[in-house]
Nucleic acid binder design. Sequence first.
DNA 1: CATTGTATTTCATCATGACAGAATACAAGC
DNA 2: GCTTGTATTCTGTCATGATGAAATACAATG
Lengths: 295, 295
Amino acid sequence: MQQPTRLQQDLAERIVQLVNEDGLAVGDLLNENSLARRLEVSRTPVRGALQHLERLGIVARRPNRGVELIAIPRAESITAPTADADEDWLVRIARDHRTAGLPQDISEVEIMRRYGLNRPTVQRVLSRLADLEMVERKPGYGWRFLTGTRDTATHDESYRFRLMIEPMGILEPGFRLESSWIENMRRLHAETLERPWQESSSVAFFEMNAAFHEGLAAASGNRFVHTAIRHQNQLRRFSQYDWKFGFERVVVNCREHMEMLDYLARDEREIASLLMRRHLERASQVRSRTDPDPG
Amino acid sequence: MQQPTRLQQDLAERIVQLVNEDGLAVGDLLNENSLARRLEVSRTPVRGALQHLERLGIVARRPNRGVELIAIPRAESITAPTADADEDWLVRIARDHRTAGLPQDISEVEIMRRYGLNRPTVQRVLSRLADLEMVERKPGYGWRFLTGTRDTATHDESYRFRLMIEPMGILEPGFRLESSWIENMRRLHAETLERPWQESSSVAFFEMNAAFHEGLAAASGNRFVHTAIRHQNQLRRFSQYDWKFGFERVVVNCREHMEMLDYLARDEREIASLLMRRHLERASQVRSRTDPDPG
DNA sequence: CATTGTATTTCATCATGACAGAATACAAGC
DNA sequence: GCTTGTATTCTGTCATGATGAAATACAATG
């Protein structure tokens, strides 16, 4: 075994996390069985993860005695480079269509040819795009892209939908926000404001933005709210990876987010909800200024 | 070719529909090419559909001249018996789990064995169940059912989510309702009230109920509202196919729906929206009476 | 006796090929 | 020239087998 599996990398990360949470020290012994039980997985992939950690010099195997902790690592040092393989194809295909690299109607084999993908992958990607209503199956064979004429309308519908949900989500009875989450978000926003803006920052900015809204949706305690917002984020990911509104809009966005965080930290949810409403209303108008709706 | 394909049956239905819409009479000729163009499909499946209609005695082929209409059928006489093959498995598997016929954790092959399904079908079904958050992939192999402890909470969350969306959907700027849809819904509801209630009516009642809410969501003109409600209906389909609240609740439900239809027919959308809010609030409390929440 | 090491079984994914149906092109008939 | 008839090509689904990884059972060791 050379390259650790996706699962093994995940487990390695989670093991490091557990080590930190349990406050273990150098020299302590880890136990394959209990790790497997806590991670809800069999011993086999746990061993793979431990071998990976061994190569990184974090643990050392003591035959028949346990796995000794050599160094306490930070979680970041293990993080796998690849996130979700399919996700990248989703974004790439959607973009290629927008930039007219792909025809409106297309077959699965055509995509296989163009991108050198195998059929299962293409099918997964297409069915995910279909969930997002970006493509649909044609009656006979093939698929058809749905975006095109409806793009500007979609934008408005998306914001009106979020206006129904996000402010109300904050008022859900089960709403509960970790203070560590708030702190983390504050830090990320502050860093974004301090760092000079570059073209390459747009993806990171988008993801922070998405994480903010998704985190609040998750905190609502209402899984349907959460699912709906995750869905929205995934959709917006296609069209907004290339941020074209300049840094001043980034500043406004971060300020508004941080204001909400302030009130949420004090559990002033009614105010936060109102701020969210205004935030979304403002954001929805941004496009109209730069790219006015012909309607 | 013996049995018409799924696609061919669909096309047969749509051809009948077109015949009715166009007001064609017995003796008129149909044209394969134009049908294929209108149905956005090649001639091949159209021919299959026409052969199907020929066997049913609705058309007759006139070689090299056209396809003659022998009888004007009602759309219902063609309707295929099978709706969506996967859908049935979805419902069945979800129910089998609820009634403890299936273990909490299960592998794909286990499902293949139990139901005699092939792997692609199992994978489609499982991934759809995963979209509905009824199952999730275990870290290693296999799947895990998520329902169980969370069922009562899910019920409340679902209604609160719908309360955010459905009343607002009626107020969407793009809202537009076909008057034929209103009439059709009125008729269905009236029939439900007149006909004696039987156990077997519960599925039909559920589907009418779902069609009402989904139709209004579609009318909102906001595709995200529509998608979200479709999603909710699919979810409720699993737990509510067996209606256990008696006929009096059916009566209340139909009356409330019909009241909304009255106002919608007069385009009194604000009132309809308010009625929808109250309707959902009442419906959400029904369970609490018959099956009180332990929390 | 608890722990790791090893072997076996089970599982899911991928690759390949067969097959049925849809798309396309061309021929034939009125 | 427009229509259906026929043949060919293309596409997607299903079936099968190979492969690598996870789950499980058992052995070995301190």
